[in-house]
Amino acid sequence: MIELQGLTKRYGEKLAVDGLTCTVRPGIVTGFLGPNGAGKSTTMRMMLDLDRPTHGTVLIDGQHYRQLKDPLRTVGALLDAKAMHGGRSAYNHLLCLAQSNGIPRARVREVLDTVGLTAVAKKRSKGFSLGMGQRLGIAGALLGDPQILMFDEPVNGLDPEGIHWIRNLMKNLAAQGRTVFVSSHLMSEMALTADHLIVIGQGRLLADTSMADFIRQNSRSYVRLRSPEIERLLDVLAGAGITAVTTEDGHLEVDGTESAQLGELAARHKLVLHELSPQQASLEEAFMQLTAESVEYHAHSAPPGGDPRPVAGADAPPDAPPDGGAAPPGGGWGADWRKKKGS
């Protein structure tokens, strides 16, 4: 169990992590999501006591990391794939880690075997590919057979077989009752592995919810409308108290109203519709919308997530999550985002 309490990290002017409070529980895979520069790696470094928090604390099973008597037996972590001396062989790299925690030497062979690096155990890690470096890092995390595992973007550089392998590895580790905490920027990847989600953007907590809830709330179903009389259609919808948003390509999107009801409404007002189709937004889109406001580094060609502009009934944000969901700390997930959007 890892508990974060008001965790904050400031680098000069830059607030990298901003008052993060959440709990990572055992027995499940907890996904840690956020766009580039959201503060995921910084948070993980603070969990391992590598970076000192500006405010707040991290407790690992009730203790500070530096108080752990045999750290590798409690926490295994993969930070950077290449956080190792390139001139040292894979075997010796793991051996020095094992020795520092009094872990039996035979365990080194075991983990090398687990990650499939036995054949290159005597080779210097300088010559390793990104994926091999990643596997060696994972071997280091597994070395102490710890009850808590932390992986910072473990699928980076792995081939499809490797990705499949690490997914199953994480699930199995969690199924054994361990705490598994894994960061990623890929919602689709997390959807396949994580049972619980913690989403941050610009260092702030955006969501702390179970995967199932996130899917239920965010595989937003909406209805897409196309009409030659778009202005009148908007008036009619607004008159009926229905919120619609226009997309970039001139469509209308309506949340929370059945397509049948919309069709009947249009028919009553003798509106011509060119399209009336129920849609399902992907989780990836949901994630991008959730973090849209906090994306710092994005390409310039298109706004992230094709963020729709509210036009009618703009007082209610179009894609606010339905109420009645889980109530995580901070007044419900997305509260922050909703506030911003509304202003």
């Binding site: 027995g27 008597k69 045999d70 037996r73 020795q99």
Partner: peptide
């Protein structure tokens, strides 16, 4: 452990407190 079960994992590998000597042998290996 099920998703909600706070069941901890107990490793079969013998545990002992790490000491300065362990750190010394690690540095020697390095």
């Amino acid at each position: 452990g099920g998703p909600a079960g706070p069941v901890g994992y107990v490793s079969p590998i013998p545990v002992r407190k790490a000491t300065l000597m362990d750190a010394v042998s690690a540095e020697w290996t390095k």
